[in-house]
């Protein structure tokens, strides 16, 4: 069948050492490069890649793999649209910078390699099992490093993709893979709603120096796009202000300083 041959062809490209390594590195990069656009593209590649890999190695019904692709694309589209519409819901600081995240990843990989609990899924090969477990671990890391709805959504979707893959291969006649796909779309809808409902939180790093306190603005009020940052843990370097802005800022600081008030009173 033409449709099944597409899935199998994509899967065959990945069903080797470099292919598996590529998928594993892609999962790890989602944790390291904390960027919503990269997360979307990476998650799509991982979800489609893993289902194609299963299609090439275990040959489930083409309709099942098609359902997996469809669920992955729809759910990521929903999440991506919500992030595009309401950027503050997607851009959120992780708990730690890139160094901490890479340490966490290294610790996770090292611990898994050292302990080696010998988890083996039936029917799956050892390499496939390790890939699925690695995806699960990185998703758990995504969930634990930030409470932001977008990254939680990506983490949950990747975990659900693991479950969907297991359903497609281990319980092929049950229709459970399709059911997990529906659950994935509902999950993505919920996460997209959470992204849109996320209040805009402007910290002192992101606002003018005069506004010290943290403020919460209603979602509808503002959705200011912020510049893309590869490593958000690093402090934001403010752009060079224009001449007029600089003069206005100087006046604002001068007006609020106590020495100016005192001198004004003395003048009166």
């Amino acid at each position: 069948m033409a449709s099944s041959s597409i899935f199998v062809a994509v899967g065959a490209l990945l069903a080797n050492g470099p292919g598996i390594l590529l998928l594993s590195a892609l999962v790890a990069s989602l944790v390291l490069v904390w960027d919503w656009r990269w997360a979307l593209v990476g998650a799509a590649a991982i979800m489609l890649g893993v289902s194609s890999l299963a299609a090439a190695l275990h040959e489930p019904a083409p309709a099942v793999t098609a359902a997996q692709w469809l669920a992955a694309l729809i759910s990521l589209l929903l999440l991506g649209l919500s992030a595009y519409i309401h950027r503050p819901g997607a851009i959120a600081h992780p708990h730690g910078n890139w160094l901490l995240r890479s340490f966490a990843l290294g610790f996770l990989a090292g611990a898994w390699w050292m302990l080696d609990p010998g988890v083996a899924l039936p029917v799956f090969t050892r390499v496939e099992t390790d890939l699925l477990i690695w995806i699960g671990l990185c998703s758990a890391l995504l969930l634990s490093l930030s409470a932001a709805p977008f990254s939680s959504g990506i983490g949950l979707l990747l975990l659900a993709a693991v479950a969907q893959n297991i359903a497609a291969v281990l319980l092929p006649g049950s229709g459970l893979a399709v059911l997990v796909g529906i659950a994935q779309i509902l999950l993505a809808l919920g996460c997209a709603y959470a992204v849109l409902a996320q209040p805009v939180r402007t910290s002192r790093l992101q606002t003018a120096p005069a506004r010290k306190a943290e403020q919460v603005v209603e979602p509808a009020a503002a959705s200011q796009p912020r510049p893309l940052r590869l490593f958000p843990g690093r402090a934001i370097r403010s752009r060079t202000p224009s001449g007029i802005e600089e003069a206005a800022e100087t006046l604002k600081v001068a007006a609020s300083s106590p020495s100016v008030e005192v001198s004004a009173k003395e003048g009166v």
Binding site: S152, G153, A197, P199
Partner: peptide
Amino acid sequence: HKEVSAGLRLL
């Protein structure tokens, strides 16, 4: 107008 992280954590 509050965060919905509790609902997400429930998932």
